[in-house]
Design a protein around this nucleic acid. Structure first.
Lengths: 261, 261
DNA sequence: AAGTGGTCTAGACCACAAC
DNA sequence: TTGTGGTCTAGACCACTTG
């Protein structure tokens, strides 16, 4: 960790490109990258505590304040969770207060708790080969192995979400319907435990569509009922796409909630 | 600004309630409130620079680092914008890179720039009285004066958004169709300039609905076409609601983009 | 009591923008 | 050259958790 000056750019020349601007990178950003690296490498697993700020400061040969700023940013990105008096922990989808952080559909009453968690029914869970567009969004090649899942989520017995998931076959070897249905808690928490894959962020594209005959049957609504089409790409560390998900949401008694700021 | 100790709780007893925990509030939070107060009071207007960190530190009798932390949080909330070497500025909807920050509908191509800004057609702009539910969400009483606007936004000549807006009559006295249609740039930027109202954050509830006869006609689509229903409540400083907006989005060539993290 | 994160300070220096 | 925000440090002390 060079300190004086804070190395203009530590990254080894990956290719022959020459940067006109040396891209000054603050020390705390370099520390952030190092911590991120340890997270990726699984040195600290979801739910575990990472070393204390003082330990990390010693390890990286910087002041506690610099480590603090790096951790602050990682906490702001929901990769770490700070708990005063206890330590800093690797974020996980299994925590109570962030459960279903990525599920934005809530009952119109707003009272998520009375409803409880969704009931899951797995219709299909099979190995397949990636089509061209699925391969593209998952960063694979056409024909590469993928796991495909189709399921229905119900709230209070009412089928509300029909979802198709595509996952890279290599990372999710051995995923089966039993796991998808049996795990208690968010699917993403199961992915962490069973496959060591932690979803960090996601992008969604939302449209309004009309239910076709099959979709209407599965969701127990009239054909042509307007549905929310939610296409999600979820990413692990380092912006690596690890899931494509296409969902159809019934919005009779629920709505998709979003906060703009 | 009490410093030793950092006043356990400065707020005067608003009611007779006794707090079991004194609710320790860090100095920088108190500074944050003071800055927020100045923003609300219009001491610094959108687009203007606020005093330098050193000046604010002197004014509040704290160190620069404490002011910095307060400003950091306000910048993270998009209330202030820092520009190295120049100063810290009050955020505004008129800035180029945050224009239409609250409009999440983008063309499927993803290329927002080729499309350019929306064409606005104001169908209606009238004074009215708040119905019960509109009064409730705007924090008014039923029958209080409101301004109601109906308009259509088109992209490349294609009508895409049909919107109804309700605004508190007192704050938006004198708003007329000419202003709504004539202003170049985001409507929220016009609100800042003409009425001194800055929208800080908003909540949206999204559903899929079918176009009725009138909506279909106005948006030039088939009746029963699935549309995205977006109900937004926008807030100024201090979580005061200042706008209710009900929009219907055509999602044939556009989609609502959302980022989860 | 010991260890963790959280706050606050003061000072030095760097990067950027404007004059 | 000056003034702004941005980084980095070192140390003191506070608040929270656990033993």
């Amino acid at each position: 960790m060079s300190q004086t000056p804070p190395s203009s750019n530590d990254s080894a020349a990956a290719d022959g490109a020459v940067q006109a601007t040396p891209a000054f990178s603050p020390l705390y950003q370099q520390i952030k990258v190092l911590i991120l690296q340890s997270l990726q490498d699984g040195e600290w697993k979801p739910g575990e505590a990472i070393p204390s700020e003082i330990e990390l400061a010693a390890r990286f040969r910087v002041s506690q304040g610099t480590v603090r700023k790096a951790i602050d940013e990682l906490a702001a990105e929901n990769l770490l969770v700070r708990r005063q008096g206890k330590g800093t922990f690797v974020a996980t989808h299994a925590e109570q207060h962030v459960r279903y952080r990525f599920l934005r559909l809530i009952p119109d009453s707003g009272d998520v708790d009375t409803e409880g968690p969704a009931q899951r029914e797995v219709l299909e869970c099979k190995r397949a080969r990636a089509s061209a567009d699925i391969a593209r969004t998952l960063g694979l090649r056409t024909g590469d192995p993928v796991v495909q899942v189709r399921r229905i989520l119900s709230f209070g017995g009412v089928p509300t979400i029909l979802e198709d998931l595509w996952l890279p076959g290599n990372a999710f070897k051995g995923l089966n319907a039993g796991q998808m249905a049996g795990y208690h808690g968010p699917t993403y928490a199961m992915f962490e435990v069973e496959f060591g894959v932690r979803m960090v962020r996601a992008e969604e594209r939302i449209r309004a569509v009309a239910a076709d005959a099959q979709q209407a049957m599965l969701l127990k609504v009239e054909q042509h009922t307007p549905l929310l089409s939610v296409e999600r790409v979820a990413y692990t560390y380092n912006d690596v796409p690890m899931e494509l998900r296409r969902g159809l949401y019934v919005t009779e008694t629920h709505h998709y909630r979003n906060e703009l700021s």
